[in-house]
Simulated assay, not measured.
Amino acid sequence: MHVVVTGALVENGAVLLVHRSPTRRAYPDLWDLPGGHVDTGESELQALAREMREELGVHIVAESASRLGDWHAGSGEDAVHVGVWKIGDWVGSPTNRAPEEHDDIAWVGINELGGLPLVFGDLAALLRDGTP
């Protein structure tokens, strides 16, 4: 099983999404939360911090991260477990530092997520439930 983490940077009722490149093998041409694989020996929070730094150039404040939930996809050798985290505080301004993975990034209102092609369709509900 592959273990993946994703991070929801939420600010002013909007979440930062990345658009997966149409050339990606998994979930091409869809909007998603930034994140990636948990490396051997890493905790989910360590992987989340590394991925946010690599993909967006931001340093998350680990104490501000809270788990929103988990998604499961695929089966057998292709099974994926995705830990979804809300990040309340970070340092830096997000920029697309992984253009080979994402061809765009955008702040999207949580109430506007239903109109986008998303990797996980229940993202809006998950964020609404976990956002005061």
Rank of each mutant, 00 (worst) to 15 (best):
T23F: 15
H2V: 09
N12M: 11
L116A: 03
R97G: 04
R53W: 10
S75Y: 10
V3F: 02
H102M: 08
A73F: 13
I105F: 11
G76I: 14
E54L: 15
V84W: 00
S43N: 06
L33T: 03
A14S: 13
G130Y: 07
A14L: 13
N111M: 10
V15Q: 01
A65C: 15
L17N: 00
G109H: 08
T23N: 08
W31K: 00
D78H: 09
L9A: 00
L56V: 14
S64L: 15
A125F: 03
G109N: 04
S75M: 13
T23R: 11
A14R: 13
P22F: 14
N111L: 13
E63H: 08
L126E: 01
G41I: 14
T6G: 08
A62F: 11
Q46P: 01
S64T: 08
R53H: 09
A106M: 14
A98Y: 12
D78V: 13
G130W: 05
G69V: 03
G115P: 03
W71N: 01
E77F: 11
G76S: 04
V80S: 03
A106S: 15
S93P: 02
E51S: 11
G69I: 01
L118N: 03
T131K: 07
M1N: 04
L127R: 02
A62W: 12
T131E: 15
P132H: 02
R24P: 02
H102D: 07
E77T: 09
L56K: 06
V91G: 08
T6I: 08
E101S: 12
R20G: 02
T95E: 13
N96K: 07
N96F: 09
H19Y: 05
D89S: 12
